[in-house]
Design a protein around this nucleic acid. Structure first.
Lengths: 198, 198
DNA sequence: ACAGATATTAGAATCTGTTCTAGTTTTGCG
DNA sequence: CGCAAAACTAGAACAGATTCTAATATCTGT
């Protein structure tokens, strides 16, 4: 879990804390989009963000927490994109594929970042909202605006399965074991089975 | 890939090298089955195996290579178990669930080790046959002895999808976010869609 | 403005994976 | 046998994540 610096008494983040946090995440993202997680060294991040190492660790108790925050921003982007331009396909499966492939293309833009981030996330002890958010998105687009709370156990399981298949295929692609087209094909096959009738 | 210490000229491993290697893997497994990968420190492994740190690194160029070797032994066990007592269920999906849940129980016996195993399975920089081996196993039991070479692209995709769903669920369980029963239920749901008609 | 709490800082220190060094031992082979 | 290649060893050295320390700065409530 990410932890927040506690601000005397109330749980509210002050403006300066918020900005500090933001600067840190931006510095981290910038570094990671070059050389991946390796280039994103805690000392360097702290330096670039104009913050002491100890402070960085106050905001992000481990490097993984920082990675998670960076990934979070990426997912925000995807969610916004989906909202701005919802998938137009006529079937639930079609819309799911649409969302997943759009996410794939988004991540492909920064392969170093994507690879590093996804690996780190899978490795993470840390609880990440990553899978859940993707699952929620899939439910929303393929089962007519359904939210995670309203969904049945089976619907959750199916959308979740599709999401984990996607993550796995993405990793395979980043490792050079799949082409974009192969992923698309495999996602289509899985989606047809898993989310046609949500 | 794991690299082997090259033995003067020929690529053959001598008996003493084989044993040394085995001692290393055993020491590593023993340590990992207690405190997980963290307890499996390279210095400690070397010490327990009665080998210098440099030698350990000659056999296993990185900690990950060592983990992969340990994991390999575990998968052998599963394959042997399946061979000895093939899944008896009447449907393809039933047999697939059978295999996966048996693997799940096997891994649960050494959760720390399992955690390391699954992560390396997913992460492996290194080309590991693990995902493919599991996919192959699923094809074999759910599509009447089909091998990876004979399977159609779709069959491969479906068995592979089930395999990645399983891996994902297993990880969730190891992180304490799923119970055994929840996994079983989710695997059943996914298997029904993915491998009913292989 | 003051007091106490919290945040921040620079930097040293610690921990563990990995690499390097220099010297010793084992192995394969003519 | 006798030598060159390869393996092995103990231990130092290095790297990057994480933790610790002591001092300073900032904030909050009164």
């Amino acid at each position: 879990m990410e932890s927040q610096p506690s601000t005397g008494g109330s749980g509210v983040r002050t403006r300066s804390q918020h900005q500090r946090r933001k600067r840190i995440v931006q510095a981290a993202a910038a570094l990671a989009s070059r050389g991946g997680v390796e280039a994103m060294q805690m000392r360097t991040v702290a330096e670039r963000a104009g913050v002491a190492l100890g402070t960085l660790y106050r905001y992000f108790p481990s490097k993984m927490d920082l990675v998670v925050a960076v990934v979070g921003e990426e997912i925000d982007l995807l969610e916004n994109s989906i909202e701005r331009r919802p998938p137009g396909a006529g079937t639930p499966a079609g819309r799911a594929v649409d969302v997943l492939m759009r996410a794939t293309r988004g991540l492909m833009r920064e392969p170093e970042l994507a690879d590093a981030l996804i690996r780190s996330l899978i490795m993470a002890e840390v609880e990440t909202p990553f899978g859940d958010r993707m699952t929620g998105l899939l439910l929303r687009v393929s089962a007519g605006g359904l939210t995670r709370d309203e969904a049945s156990e089976e619907q959750l399981a199916l959308a979740g399965s599709l999401s984990s298949v996607w993550v796995h295929e993405l990793l395979e692609m980043l490792r050079g074991r799949r082409t974009y087209d192969q992923i698309q094909r495999r996602i289509e096959i899985a989606a047809a089975r898993l989310v046609s009738d949500l």
